[in-house]
Amino acid sequence: MWTIKRFPALWLLPALLPVALMTLYPVAYAFWTSLHSVMLLFPGEPFVGLDNYKRVVSSNYFHDALRNSLVFTLLAAPLVVIIGTLIALFLQRRFFGSQVVRSIVLLPWVLPGAISAVLWIWVFHPSFGVLNGVLRDLHLIDSSIPWLTSPRLALVSVVIAHVWTQIPFAVVLLMAALSGINSETLEAAAIDCRSALKRFRYIVFPEIKAMIVVLIVYNALTAFTSYDLVYAMTGGGPGTATTLLSFQIWRESFSMYDFGSGSAVAFIVVAISAVLIVAITRALPSDLFGE
């Protein structure tokens, strides 16, 4: 009999084949590449074992990029979710013009990364930048702050820009999660507890926790693999102050034409991402990931 129970794998094939073709094959090929010396300028693709990994890991460039990527991720992912939650909570309220504000909040979402980058370059510009202008007008600073050209500030600046681009998505999902809470449950809570902060902690947060975990995981991955916005804003500079691991993948592969090393970096990124996901879902257990 052709029942689903009898040949489960067979019935799943139509769905699994495209996945295999589009995802598994490229990943497997990349892994194969990372174990071979694949250079555009040299014919032959000899097996080199972990040599590619050893070489990229031992470079100073990798150390800088890894540190920057981790700092970038650890700052950006929580910030996106925390600010996103605050905005979502605020936008849940009905007030005069709330519909307009809701639409405006979504605006950064529709801008391509490169355009957001141009916007933020102008915000942070040392001479004409809005930010320096405002700070000067408020007499908080005497001379312009070199946001994008001082190493430490540059990383903070690109984090701010990145967070700005990612918030709308978080806000939309969190508003969806918030609107899923029974309004009478919230009213019952208002009768049971005076403190809005406690009500959020005990009633609202548990209800949106699954969504928050999803968003933290998603944003950790987005930040850890981020490329376009940061590259367009600073090109990784000054020096290597804003160089991310994704830059190294590009550099090894398309600047050095050493696809083996590029793939090796890519696989290190995948491995660290996997560790991040496990760490986040362990730290914040929710029904979603089989508590």
Partner: peptide, 20 residues
Amino acid sequence: VAAADRGIAMVFQSYALYPH
């Protein structure tokens, strides 16, 4: 006076229990 301080308790149509 805030709802929590009125000395009342309410039973809702949807029961409004805290699901978690």
